[in-house]
Design a protein around this nucleic acid. Sequence first.
DNA 1: CGTTCCCTTGACACCGATCAACTCTGGTGG
DNA 2: CCACCAGAGTTGATCGGTGTCAAGGGAACG
Lengths: 252, 252
Amino acid sequence: MEGRLMQSLFVRKLSTFSPLSPDSERELERATRDIRAFKSGDVVLRSGDVPQRAHAILEGFACRYKLLPDGKRQILDFLIPGDLCDGHMLFMAEMDHNVAALSACRIAIIPHATLLHLTERRPDVARALWWSALVQESIAREWIVNVGRRFGEQRVGHLLCEICFRLAAVGLVRDREYQLPLTQLDLADATGLSAVHINRVLQRLRADGLIRLRSGKLTVNDLRRLEEFSGFDPAYLHPRAPVRTPRISLSA
Amino acid sequence: MEGRLMQSLFVRKLSTFSPLSPDSERELERATRDIRAFKSGDVVLRSGDVPQRAHAILEGFACRYKLLPDGKRQILDFLIPGDLCDGHMLFMAEMDHNVAALSACRIAIIPHATLLHLTERRPDVARALWWSALVQESIAREWIVNVGRRFGEQRVGHLLCEICFRLAAVGLVRDREYQLPLTQLDLADATGLSAVHINRVLQRLRADGLIRLRSGKLTVNDLRRLEEFSGFDPAYLHPRAPVRTPRISLSA
DNA sequence: CGTTCCCTTGACACCGATCAACTCTGGTGG
DNA sequence: CCACCAGAGTTGATCGGTGTCAAGGGAACG
């Protein structure tokens, strides 16, 4: 829908991390014109890969995950429109986890060379990328708390709150509702629970009137109550702009 | 012990992330001359703080943690000599978690102004700091897997492997042994288990001949076996130097 | 219009929490 | 030097959250 608009979600989101100059936005926009479609289940990045191109979600849901020797899967993060899948690969040697599409996705492919070149000449871009890595770190830490110390109901509630806030930040929440193209198995692997248990947890959340979830559409009946119930505090998403905005320039 | 040597662990570790020029090392060294002692239990950084100074561990163990409304604690990471507690605070608005000493610690206090100034003039320093943030992110993700999808024995085993590798990287492992000044409650809060259960897990690991743990000293009898048992793969610690080393300069 | 996921439900097992007591250790002061 | 004390480690009994297994129902897609 609205090709041009959706395309710029990546740039828009980056600029909320740290303001971008119009020129930088234009150049980033130009760099994200190579768009590929992925089907649900497609693997975008594989552990051990040494990717030469960066991937930015424009539409759809994806996730980071790791597989254990015994076949169990742990989802590490959901990737929503505007998210960069592999920002760290600009510097690191190889992927240490996988990324796969959880729904049909449109993903922008950006050669590292282009992104590096852009970053070298544009301090605001470098700053935004660095900042986005810090937010990801912060989200990962909250996930540790989620799987480590909360009960099933709170885990799921907390996760749904996080997704709500993150989607809202890119304008994908309307009337307390958002598209959630996730399987109960996906929710299970994100929360460290089993699919059967997720099913029962969802039923209880529905029975308590906290959420409605039908055919991929989630409705939060009372966000305040769900936050309270789940122990959710959006501070860890660092929604505001950074305090200091030093000029960062990457020059070759 | 050996004041001068210990002091430079922070600099030494940073330079393993990304090589530092002798000048940068010298300047960093000079910036870390303000050293404070902390007792076990002392809170170094509190959630909500807006610190004006960065903290680097020179000696001892500390941890990041969050407290839940019901009083439960989840440890998010252990901070060992060489680690920067709050690198992200150079950019972010406020702390979203706490940092406390788990043993007697010596911690270098570096004013943000100094660190920023240094970073602005020295691309190699900026690059090393960015890189260190990426490694922290990677560690946090592996912790999600640990608490989400492993059994008690493997969780603890995996954690002990990680600490072993990280301590070894700063030269604090000798003869498969290292100082582990952690309470069983600390291990519990790091693995999402209860203190009682940790006790039983440790007994089983000892009985299986995998480890020895007495009076704060941990011995790994057979690292290969412990890794295999715990599903540990050090790749996520990204021990090697970054592939690309673009010049990053922060200029005000 | 049938195949394939996905969701749902029930029975049962088990990992790990909780509670409560006891022991050990290291440090302190008389 | 020893008695004491507080914190940490240990143990047993019991409870409960969550996993596993197995079967059936529903909805989407070709």
